[in-house]
Design a protein around this nucleic acid. Structure first.
Length: 419
DNA sequence: TCTGGGGTCCTAGGACCC
DNA sequence: TCTGGGGTCCTAGGACCC
């Protein structure tokens, strides 16, 4: 059996750990730039605040109902997420973190009669040790566990075992086809056109049709609904195959110089991520865009290939800036920039140049290692590339004025208890 | 006025190989 | 009229996930 542990309203629950006064009250968390609502407590959902809605559209509802609003605080959420995972692994080493708030668990070694008891214990422990409420769904496959988790959110114990139901098909008949994991808007439209409306309909769909119209991915989903495991397990997540840092800007930028500062900064962040997973890249894509919500939307993107794969900040920033130069058009008001690394390879397997040695320089490598170490230990940027501007004082960085303290990861922001 | 930021996997079609 | 059988690699774009 497979279980899925899913944190309830994760970001909102993280905020509540250190703000117990918000228990039982509506809480929302905003995206970068305080743009959209990306997390809602149960009470906020009940007020009819939709997922992903622009903040300005629900400002009135929020004011009227005394909703607590937070800018996103990823330092906090990431730390709480790793604590949840640590607790899960204590009970079940065979756990695969799937997203910041979800993990799949293999319960094959457990007797089926023990599964519910196990889930109850795990749920209680996560709440007690970390302070996060979770729902747990159990099923024969990941897809079924996903459906079970959805039902667990409604169950009073926060746990649901779809395999233990007398008539699982009738349960599936109550699930809309677009709520099945892997079936999005497009596919569900196709399915509905041929009268496949529920998870149960999909389970018994004709394989040939599914393969033809939904590709092998859709077919795997059908098999998973039938109880056949098609999606594997990885306890240790693979290295990323692409690394991207992109942001909406706090102000519109028009000049090349200002844009180049932002591009250089985000390319630096991306190279840090690349080094953190001990990888190299030789393909750097830079993109810049104007506001998506205007008629003359412009999206400029250029890819630069390096002679050999690298991971040092100077080489990658240089490439990103070359891309910017080609993508930049004067006179536009840019609102978004991003840097993307693809063709990522392991550091241990390096391709050198044929005609000259243009591989990653040993000296530069040592330098980057030391800089990363210093910045990591100081827990804030101490050494950075001047081209990216001074961290925390770049004028184009979007504001996050409602961010809570980084309680668990910054000494300066640790909670104080007054006696 | 204000509209997020990451990822993965698959397909189709072109160009090429023997 | 009939026109082989097997591959690879690349790019662009689609669809999905949280």
């Amino acid at each position: 059996m497979i279980a899925l542990v899913d944190c309830d309203s994760f970001y909102a629950s993280c905020e509540r750990i250190f703000r117990p006064d918000l228990e039982g009250k509506p809480v929302v968390v905003l995206s970068n730039n305080d743009g959209c609502v990306i997390a809602r407590s149960r009470e906020a959902k009940a007020l009819g605040i939709p997922m992903g809605v622009p903040y300005f559209k629900v400002r009135e509802t929020i004011a009227k109902n005394d909703v607590a609003v937070f800018s996103s605080n990823y330092a906090l959420y990431q730390d709480i997420s790793s604590r949840v995972l640590e607790t899960i692994r204590h009970f079940c080493p065979e756990a695969e973190p799937y997203s910041i708030d979800e993990s799949f668990l293999v319960l094959d070694s457990l007797k089926s009669s023990d599964e519910i008891a196990f889930a109850k214990r795990l749920r209680r422990s996560i709440k007690r040790f970390v302070g996060i409420p979770v729902s747990i769904g159990i099923g024969q496959t990941k897809t079924l566990a996903k459906i079970a988790t959805k039902l667990a959110k409604e169950a009073k114990e926060g746990i649901y075992d779809i395999a233990a139901q007398k008539d699982p098909d009738s349960v599936l008949a109550g699930i809309d086809v677009e709520d099945v994991w892997g079936i999005g808007r497009r596919q569900s439209k196709k399915l509905r056109a041929i009268r496949i409306r529920t998870a149960c309909d999909l389970k018994y769909a004709e394989e040939g049709w599914i393969k033809k119209h939904l590709s092998v991915v859709g077919l795997k989903t059908v098999y998973e609904l039938r109880g056949l495991r098609c999606f594997g397990f990885r306890e240790v997540p693979d290295n990323r195959k692409s690394i991207c840092v992109s942001r909406s800007l706090g102000v519109y930028l028009t000049s090349y110089d200002e844009l180049s500062q932002a591009v250089a900064f985000y390319a630096s962040l991306a190279s840090e991520k690349l080094r953190a997973q001990r990888s190299l890249t030789d393909t750097v894509t830079t993109y810049i865009a104007t506001s998506f919500h205007t008629d003359d939307f412009y999206w400029g993107t250029r890819t630069i290939r390096l002679e050999t794969p690298k991971n040092d900040t100077p080489s990658l920033v240089k490439a990103a800036l070359e891309g910017l130069k080609l993508a930049y058009i004067e006179g536009k008001k840019y609102k978004r920039v991003g840097v993307l690394f693809t063709e990522i390879t392991p550091y241990e397997v390096q391709q050198r140049g044929l005609f000259c040695d243009t591989g990653q320089s040993v000296k530069l490598n040592a330098l980057m290692h030391i800089i990363d170490k210093i910045n990591f230990e100081a827990n804030k940027p101490m050494i950075w590339l001047a081209a990216g501007g001074k961290p925390n004082s770049q004028k184009w960085v979007a504001s996050a004025s409602m961010r809570s303290p980084r309680y668990t990861s910054y000494w300066d922001e640790i909670p104080l208890v007054k006696v």
